[in-house]
Design a binder for these strands. Structure first.
Length: 851
RNA sequence: GGGCGUUUAGCUCAGUUGGCUAGAGCGCUUCCCUUACAAGGAAGAAGUCGGGGGUUCGAGUCCCUCAACGCCCACCA
């Protein structure tokens, strides 16, 4: 690295450096100079590749993003300074339901795919209720428009934060390339038998009208009520069940008790008639029926909850679905209700929402005398789609799945082994992964009945009889990807044959967004499109992400990589914690405690906010704490001022650190370098910051004060001081550069050429021949502290002269102090310094003012 | 019901293989306009390291147990 001569650079040091305004200045310079551009010519061992999380474009970035992205950036900057070419892409996840929901709320619209495209459409100025219905194409256009706006805001925030991503490696999960990768990977899965389609009960969100996957579930407490309701045995006697879903009695296909339950054993094999509807259902047994729950005998509906699905599957029961995908009961009387009374009763419920039907059903049951007592209010836990507002229902539908080990012990074992191949930071996060894999109950449901997403790239032949052949999907050639089967005809067919007997139909679904984002390494690294790049960066070195999406993003990425590449997607997974408010609650919009990141960056400066973020250990949930940002800002100011001071003293001649105090300081610094390096090697940016920061403050408080007098002068020791100050400053700046990129770059520019972020990480070799005995600075700091204490106790200025100091200490310490005698005397304002060898250490101070 | 994590000064947190007379910052108190820094500096007070047991010469650190909090999972009629 080049260095300018003293007279040139010193003029560039501002008289009063301030931390404000550094962000735009340096963000622009870094971009213009390509400071963080990936060098793809480097060989794999010289590359560090990062599978950066593409933030979901469904609103604003929040503090959690600032927090975890700062961690990754610190690692990236460290690796870059270590000499590696850092592959650090950025993407946006703007595909899927979260984006649709954002668009719906933002513009006040809903997609109605039956509407024709309106070329002159403009969204409502103000969202109103009810929402305006728009065509699918208009809806997608709105998604495109809003995501681009959101992404521009995200980009601005990330640049202001100082992320050292390579902005030229940019992707969006709805762009053509991502679609191509997602479809190609899907077709490969299909070709190898890892993807399949099946008609089965699925968890269904009645508002979004789509199936959802196990990984997207969330439990929520709901107020409900237990109803005791009589079915009727053949002899006319009642048999009471307990249920929270009386409106689903119409879908009842059996009553179930435990095989060992004596109360019901005699009934097994007989039938019971449902109340009101008079539908005869068998009494059956199953191990899952709990004798101690309710009356010990339960109705099995198709389907009220996941237990119903298990019973239905295990006992081979019929399907009597009455709840539609919009959450309402069917409007026609189901054919399995055959009695006139039953038909009349159902008419009362037809077309109602589940909630309305429940209320009416209870009234009807009360009238008929089948309701025993009053419903008992309870609170119970119900499955929700994590982004949904109403409880999930279960409906039967045709969906696409990818194997994930949920129904295949051998695959499960393979995926667990993949988990063991990865280094987890912190290590216990591996347990969460294993726990999730071991708890899977079924394959990964990837199809969604939505609009904004990557289409499932298949068609189905329609027979001459008009029946669709779902068992033999027609697939496109990989060279035709990306493709939309809704607009392109199936290979070998004409568009005119769409939807006709003897023709074809397109699969109507899109893939869930995780089915695309599980391929971020492949998307970013040019899988199949750029084999040279792919070979250089894949498997990647690091996947940084938060712990709440281990079950989704992390797991799915491992699964796809396992199938496609027979390898792990990355060697390290660094899992960040969450930001919680000071009450330890997760911060969320609904609690109204969300702070906008940009306001904080502007108020405290990006380095200060990064300082706060870096104080949270890897994996640890961290409190939002503005006080930490103030401390960070203070550190930034200190760096600027101390640098100005150290650089303003002079340059010194090369290679002449002669004074014991200076060599002692550098020896201490060498140890700090070692600590920070090993911390960063373990991805522990927090420890690296902690060690560096305390060393830096101590350096300012003690060493700078001790060396000041000598450095101001032009005596024989001045050159040593200047040289040591500059060496130390260079090291401190570089140690702090990954964490405080703006301030350190600013100072670097005062006296060095090139970016500090392209300079080399401090190494022990830099100190070769420059270090001395640690004890010298230690001892001098100790005595200086005692002198300060004496002055402070006497409530006197630190400038107060000291008549005499008498130090008593063991001989080694006295010998060390002798080596710093002049510096110490000057720093303390001591006129007479006496030292005596003693077993006990003590410092006697006689202040001039009190003498 | 199972699992994981957390519990150290008023607050936010360090404390790496057991050696701590337990540290830092914020806040608080006192003092200091000192020529790098008053968006600063110096000094100080403040903790039975969640409770209880155990291992050990020695435990904040290891083992057992209990509790609180957070998160994840579970077949939630």
């Amino acid at each position: 690295m080049g260095r300018r001569r003293y007279p040139d650079y010193v003029t560039q040091i501002p008289d009063k450096p301030v931390p404000d305004g550094l962000e735009p200045k340096w963000a622009e310079r870094w971009e213009a100079e390509g400071t963080y551009r990936f060098d793809r010519e480097r060989a794999r061992p010289e590359i560090f590749s990062i599978d950066t999380p593409p933030p979901t474009v469904s609103g604003e970035l929040h503090l959690g993003h600032i927090f975890s992205y700062t961690h990754t950036d610190a690692i990236a900057r460290y690796q870059r300074m270590k000499g590696l070419a850092v592959f650090y892409p950025i993407g946006f996840d703007d595909n899927g339901l979260p984006t649709e929901r954002r668009v719906q709320n933002y513009y006040g619209v809903r997609c109605d795919p039956t509407l024709p495209h309106d070329p002159g459409f403009t969204p409502p100025e103000q969202p109103f209720d009810p929402p305006e219905l728009v065509s699918k194409r208009n809806f997608i256009e709105l998604c495109e428009r809003l995501t681009l706006e959101d992404e521009a805001v995200f980009t601005n925030l990330f640049r202001t934060l100082g992320l050292s991503v390579d902005w030229s490696i940019n992707y969006r999960t709805i762009d053509q390339h991502a679609r191509q990768v997602a479809q190609r990977a899907f077709l490969r899965n299909l070709g190898r038998g890892e993807a399949y389609t099946a008609e089965a009960p699925v968890l269904w969100d009645i508002d979004f009208r789509t199936a959802v996957a196990q990984a997207e579930l969330e439990d929520r407490e709901e107020r409900s009520a237990l109803h005791r309701i009589d079915f009727h045995l053949q002899d006319g006697s009642p048999i009471t069940i307990e249920t929270t879903r009386p409106e689903l009695i119409v879908s009842c296909v059996a009553l179930v008790a435990h095989p060992d339950d004596d109360r019901y054993r005699s009934l097994v094999g007989t039938t019971a008639a449902s109340p009101l509807f008079g539908v005869e259902v068998p009494v059956v047994t199953h191990d899952l029926a709990a004798p101690d729950k309710g009356t010990g005998i339960a109705q099995i509906c198709t389907f009220g909850d996941t237990t119903d699905v298990v019973w239905w599957r295990d006992l081979d029961l019929p399907t009597r679905a009455a709840l539609q995908r919009d959450g309402r009961l069917v409007s026609e009387v189901p054919e399995w209700i055959t009695t006139d009374g039953g038909r009349a009763a159902f008419t009362e419920l037809a077309g109602k929402t589940a909630k309305q039907a429940r209320r009416r059903m209870v009234e009807l049951l009360a009238e008929s005398g089948d309701l025993r007592g009053d419903p008992e209010p309870i609170t119970h836990v119900v499955k929700f789609y994590e982004k949904g507002d109403r409880p999930l229902e279960i409906v039967t539908s045709r969906q696409w799945y990818i194997h994930n080990g949920g129904r295949d012990p051998a695959l499960r074992e393979d995926l667990l082994l993949r988990g063991k191949e990865i280094r987890w930071i912190p290590d216990f996060m591996r347990v969460r992964y294993e726990h999730w894999v071991n708890g899977l109950t079924g394959d990964w449901l990837i199809s969604r009945q939505r609009y904004l997403g990557v289409p499932i790239p298949v068609w189905y032949a329609v027979g001459a009889d008009g029946d669709t052949d779902y068992d033999h999907p027609i697939v496109p050639s990989e060279s035709d990807l990306p493709i939309d089967p809704a607009t392109s005809p199936a290979p070998g067919y004409e568009e005119s044959q769409r939807g006709r007997p003897g023709g074809f139909v397109a699969d109507p679904d899109v893939m869930d967004t995780w089915a695309t984002s599980s391929l971020t390494p492949q998307i970013a690294a040019g899988w199949e499109d750029d084999p040279d790049l792919f070979a250089r960066v894949f498997p990647m070195d690091l996947r940084p992400q938060a712990h709440d999406i281990i079950r989704t993003w992390l797991f799915a990425t491992i699964t796809r990589s396992h199938f496609e590449h027979d390898s792990v997607p990355w060697s390290n997974a660094a899992i960040s914690g969450w930001i919680v408010d000071p009450d330890r609650k997760k911060m969320s919009k609904s609690k109204g405690n969300v702070v906008t990141p940009m306001a904080l960056l502007e108020q405290y400066g990006s380095d200060a906010v990064r300082y706060w973020a870096a104080s949270g250990r890897p994996g640890a949930d961290t409190a939002f704490d503005e006080a930490q940002m103030k401390v960070g800002r203070r550190l930034v100011i200190k760096v600027l001022n101390a640098s100005r001071f150290a650089l303003g003293l002079g340059e010194g001649a090369a290679g002449d650190v002669t004074e014991a105090l200076d060599r002692s300081m550098l020896a201490g610094l060498a140890a700090v370098v070692e600590e920070a390096t090993s911390a960063f090697d373990g991805f522990d940016y927090a420890r690296a910051l902690d060690r560096t920061e305390s060393a830096f403050w101590a350096w300012c408080d003690d060493y700078l004060e001790l060396v000041k007098g000598r450095a101001y002068g032009d005596g024989p020791g001045a050159g040593s001081a200047h040289r040591a100050l500059r060496s130390a400053l260079s090291v401190f700046l570089r140690l702090l550069a990954p964490l405080l990129p703006f301030a350190t770059e600013e100072v670097w520019s005062w006296w060095q050429q090139g970016s500090i972020h392209r300079s080399s990480w401090p190494a022990a070799a830099e100190f070769a021949g420059l270090t001395g005995d640690l004890a010298v600075l230690d001892a001098a700091s100790w005595v200086l502290g005692e002198i300060r204490k004496a002055k402070s106790d006497a409530k006197l200025s630190m400038r107060t002269p000291v008549e005499s100091v008498e130090v008593r200490a063991p001989d080694e310490r006295v010998a060390a102090l002798e080596l710093a005698r002049d510096d110490l005397s000057h720093a303390g304002g001591v006129e007479r310094l006496e030292m005596k060898i003693d077993g006990e250490s003590s410092v006697g101070v006689v202040l001039a003012a009190t003498a």
